[in-house]
Amino acid sequence: MRALIIDDEQGVRDLLAENLRSQCFAVDTASDGTEGSYLARTNTYDIIILDNMLPEKSGIMVCQEIRKTGHTTPILILSALSDTWRKVDLLNGGADDYMIKPFSFEELMARIRALMRRPNDIEGDILTIDDVVLDTKRQSVKRGDKGIYLTRKEFMLLEYLMRNLGNVLSRGMIMEHVWDMTSDPFSNTIESHILSLRKKVDTNPEKKLIYTVPGRGYKIDTTQY
């Protein structure tokens, strides 16, 4: 697997490169937007990691350039700023995900893996696992033919897990996608909701669905790890 890192800070570049290489990635690096954009457009990568604050060209511009040439490589943007509108702008500009600095590498890897598996993302309005049926249009959940009542956040959490069926979703990812926050003001928001979800949905002790992956995050899956 090939990765491209575009960041003007040598420290960050080296660190990321080293970490990715230890995960068996072949890594190319670029120290500015022009070089990075060029590399991205002329080579094929499985993942591009792009810093938002670059000299000369901004991250969003590089992103747009890459997208203009038709490359659909997943792009993950690193930024120190966490404003919602910024995220929206970047995602609209063609980025696939967004990470706030500082981040843990584990978190980063979790997201990278999630991004690389995107094509397998389950699209569609109706998600199923085992006999759990989640209808996004009608905002309803059924286990078998019994309807389950979920609060809004619980529903969103379950949907997120089910869309990324089999993937480990880190706390950061969950916090961001479901609660649109960078840090947890209650420090146990996710745990509480996972607990609640398990109580309501994951009721079959023989067929566990929601898994906690220690140190990494949570996932929903049908097979035992």
């Binding site: 420290g11 660190l15 604050m53 690193l78 120190a80 700023l81 600095k101 500082p102 584990e106």
Partner: peptide, 19 residues
């Protein structure tokens, strides 16, 4: 700019310690 300048070294630190 301040934010970026402050958070970047922290990123390096964090990743470093993780490693």
């Amino acid at each position: 700019d301040i934010s970026h300048a402050l958070q970047t070294p922290l990123t390096i630190l964090k990743s470093g310690f993780e490693r």
